[in-house]
């Protein structure tokens, strides 16, 4: 019995990790005032790129890097369109997702059915020997540890550093930030590309660790869950980590629901993250103070600098 519980918990961790990556990147992007709805597309392109590179070279690090780079490139396209050429962020983001789905399917055609053993587990000496806890906390692949470090780093960056303060300021009022002499467009470029890198990393985790293979459309809506997650967390990094594990658990319960005797239609379970997000939206909308403190006021708005 305890063996099943541990296995379930382990799968929850692997289900939550890609959500953490994609959502924490989008959180930074949105905090700067940019809404990039292309997360799903960037994840897919990241996933296929890292899988191609790792199966050609056989070097794990190169695979992960390829995923990150692919996400960055795609978000750079988005940035040029939306930040330099002032295209609509919503439309461009949606287009980016559709483009990513198509591009990854095309690039991955020859990769279907190719085998890869997955990222090695990085067991921490001594600690991983501990009963239960050792297996649960200290014997994962490196990306799981990275995901926790990333959340901590983002929380520290946003609320403890000057650069983080500037980022939040740009998202709150780009006109005021411009008047004070901050380069709004450059800051948003950086934030958007960071978001792309994280989405690519999320994709790399999916194809290299979660299920080490390439399947068309293998993100299966995780990009959209990540977007919902940012709002669910009301743009706070630690709440986002909690939300990722909550949504991850829901998706695992939905998979193992039958096995553990849970008689709920799986469709209902896959609706849960979105229902939860809508509920949270309604709840935080009741308190305008909370919205004002956390939601970036300029999100999705085009910025026209005056010279």
């Amino acid at each position: 019995m305890s063996e099943t519980v541990i296995l379930t918990l382990l799968t929850i961790i692997t289900a939550a990790t890609p959500l953490v990556f994609a959502a924490i990147g989008e959180l930074i992007t949105e905090k700067s005032g940019v809404l990039n709805l292309g997360v799903e597309g960037m994840m897919l392109v990241g996933a296929v790129s890292s899988f191609i590179v790792v199966s050609v070279t056989g070097v794990d690090v190169l695979g992960v890097l390829a995923g990150v780079l692919a996400g960055m490139l795609l978000s750079l396209v988005f940035s040029v369109l939306c930040l330099t050429l002032q295209a609509s962020q919503v439309a461009t983001g949606l287009a980016l997702t559709l483009f990513g789905i198509g591009l990854s399917a095309l690039a991955g055609q020859s990769m279907i059915g190719v085998a890869y053993e997955g990222l090695p587990k990085l067991s921490i000496p001594i600690l991983s020997e501990l009963p239960v806890v050792g297996q649960l906390l200290f014997s994962h692949d490196i990306l799981v540890y990275v995901s926790f470090a990333l959340v901590a780093a983002v929380a520290w960056f946003l609320y403890r550093t000057r650069a983080g303060l500037v980022l939040r300021a740009v998202g709150d009022s780009h006109d005021a930030a411009h008047a004070l002499g901050y380069n709004v467009v450059a800051i948003r470029y950086l934030a958007t590309v960071f978001g792309g890198a994280c989405s690519g990393l999320a994709g790399a985790y999916l194809s290299m660790s979660y299920s080490p293979m390439w399947v068309e459309n293998m993100t299966a809506g995780r990009g959209w869950i990540a977007l919902a997650l940012v709002v669910f967390a009301s743009w706070r990094p630690w709440r986002l980590l909690f939300g990722a594990y909550l949504f991850g658990s829901i998706s695992i319960l939905q998979l193992h629901g039958q096995a553990i005797g849970l008689d709920v239609p799986s469709q209902l379970m896959s609706m849960l993250p979105y229902i939860a997000t809508i509920l949270v939206l309604v709840l935080i909308s009741r308190d305008r103070g909370k919205i004002r403190r956390n939601a970036p006021a300029c999100i999705g708005k085009a910025f026209h600098p005056t010279t």
């Binding site: 403890r160 000057r162 303060l165 709150d172 009022s173 008047a179 004070l180 004002r292 403190r293």
Partner: peptide, 25 residues
């Protein structure tokens, strides 16, 4: 038209308007 950031505190707003040398919080 004030160049203030509504979602930030008074002290954060002031820090943003000072030189890059100043820290946060």
């Amino acid at each position: 038209h004030f160049s203030l950031f509504e979602s930030l505190t008074v002290s954060e707003n002031i820090a943003l308007g000072l030189g890059d040398s100043s820290g946060v919080n």
